[in-house]
Design a protein around this nucleic acid. Structure first.
Length: 467
RNA sequence: GUCCCCAUCGUCUAGCCUGGUCCAGGACACCGGCCUUUCAAGCCGGCAACGGGGGUUCGAAUCCCCCUGGGGACGCCA
């Protein structure tokens, strides 16, 4: 049975990189019919915040990455970590260290200056067990790391990775304030929760040998590892706040669809032949860890936008209509998900790439008092077009329903003959009169959705606006 | 500085394991055309890459070594 986990620390929002790691865990686990666990690593009391937890849970839920267990919180498990630290201390796998941060910092700087590794010099590693000189002083607990030998593991994405033990140092597993640190808690929780596969960012490769050593000292089975390359920004550096949206939820607010995000994220670092479009079911069916690339990938907003456009025009129209509602509300438009809204969606979905864009483009379907775009008015609402608009309004009177496309076509054809003009010369002024802008869905769709009375009123308003 | 990881079009990638079918395929973006009622969409076409050097081999994007480049880690953060 495969059991995996996503273990973010609530010291920041759920960003694209974290979301992809969570997604890869999820897809791999579901592919194998396993269990996906969510665990919040909040041992850093100073920086952990409730609002970030909300953002992470909200982001994952929106994306469609659902956890089977959790969320577990590490702050609820402190006793477990303490008990384990004690066990290690008893067995001689850990020791108390009395060096102060200031001293440590100096030693580090010195080592670095001399071209060495900035590692702890193990001053306290071999203090006699009956040492009384440090009695009462604050201390941390360090893991006693082997000095010789090597640690290797088989990474599901990169094959064998080996570290020499002398590269590792005696890391702190418990702080002076009696709280545990990451490399310790992560091992205990993964072991206790029965995690079989650890899929995480490759910035954790260096931590892996240290964690393996802890598993071994605790006599827990070592899980499988898979290190996913990091996502980079356009400048090829690790994705960070300055590369744009910091929270996944910002993409939701910008009008992106979770289907598009999931599809895009899955394809970032992973491929299945030449296929670009995947449903969630297909991803679960086809995703596999060995197919994940080893090199970092650059986040490309253009491609995401393209994919979003694809889903805008292929998802069921009622679905899009429902999701458009909050964006309309954002523009002060209160409407319901009725047949008319669906009609608006159908007319606009081919030309909008996000829900936000669609909402902006649909404004004139819901308001009569919109302003005319200045350039559009100057070009198409003029003394020259006034007679055309008057004739068009007049011709409309004998047409009963705006759904009578044939009759409307005939009306426009008649006017093109009368004015010896191309259809566009008739249609554009009408479009500006009805929509206030030169860009809109097909004019027959527009009039059909607006209805006769609205069309009449808007023509009148436009004509009156001409001096 | 030390250690670890990585390296195909501008970007995401296929191909690499199991050398020849690859003078390298798809997608986004870009450019051009068609369609057309505006804008899109759609369709057709174009531009564009195996980082460098050595090997191995009849033959290398594919295997090996070195170099270079990029990234990551080196926290009483996770």
């Amino acid at each position: 049975m495969v059991k995996s986990r996503f273990a973010p620390s609530p010291t920041g929002n759920l960003h694209i990189g974290g979301a992809r790691t969570a997604l890869f865990n999820y897809l791999y686990t579901k592919h194998h019919g396993g269990i996906f666990v969510l665990r919040i690593e909040d041992t850093d009391v100073e920086r952990s915040k409730e609002e970030y937890v909300d953002d992470i849970l909200g982001g994952l839920s929106w994306l469609g990455v659902h956890w089977d267990e959790g969320p577990y919180y590490q702050k609820d498990r402190m006793d477990i970590y303490r008990e384990h630290a004690f066990r290690l201390l008893e067995a001689g796998h850990a020791y108390k260290c009395y060096c102060t941060p200031e001293v440590l910092d100096e030693k580090k700087k010195k080592a670095l200056k001399e071209g060495g590794k900035p590692h702890y010099d193990r001053t306290c590693r071999d203090l006699p067990p009956d040492d009384a000189s440090n009695e009462g002083k604050p201390f941390v607990i360090r893991f006693r790391s082997p000095v010789t030998g090597q640690v290797s593991f088989t990474d599901l994405i990169r094959d064998t990775i080996t570290f020499r033990c002398e590269e590792l140092d005696d890391l702190i597993i418990f702080r002076t304030d009696n709280t545990p640190t990451y490399n310790f808690t992560v091992v205990i929780d993964d072991a206790l929760m029965g995690i079989t596969h650890i899929v995480r960012g490759d910035d954790h490769i260096n931590n892996t040998p240290r964690q393996i050593l802890i598993y071994e000292a605790l006599k827990y089975p070592v899980p499988q590892f898979a290190h996913v390359p990091l996502i980079h920004g356009k400048d090829k550096a690790r994705l960070s706040k300055r590369h744009g949206a910091t929270s996944l939820l910002e993409y939701r607010n910008d009008g992106f669809l979770p289907e598009a995000l999931m599809n895009y994220l899955a394809r970032l670092g992973w491929a299945h032949g030449d296929q670009e479009i995947f449903t969630q079911e297909e991803l679960i069916e086809k995703f596999d860890l060995p197919a994940v690339g080893k090199s970092p990938s650059v986040f490309d907003m253009d491609k995401l936008t393209w994919l979003n456009g694809h889903y805008m025009k292929t998802l069921p129209e009622e679905e899009i209509a429902g999701r458009l509602l909050p964006f309309l509300k954002g523009l002060g438009i209160e409407t319901s998900c009725d047949a008319r809204l669906v009609r608006v969606v159908v007319s606009l979905r081919e030309r909008s790439r996000t829900l936000k864009e669609m909402a902006r483009m649909s404004e004139y379907f819901f308001r009569d008092d919109f302003p005319f775009d200045e350039a559009a008015g100057a070009k198409f609402l003029t003394a020259a077009t006034k007679p055309i608009l008057l004739d068009f309004a007049e011709g409309l009177k004998v047409i009963t329903s705006m759904d009578e496309e044939e009759a409307l076509k005939a009306l426009i054809e008649g006017l093109t003959k009368k004015y010896n003009a191309k259809p566009v010369a008739v249609i554009q002024p009408v479009r500006v009169a009805l929509c206030g802008r030169t860009v809109s869905p097909g004019i027959f769709e527009v009039v059909a959705i607006l209805g006769k009375e609205t069309v009449r009123k808007r023509l009148t308003r436009a004509i009156e606006s001409i001096q």
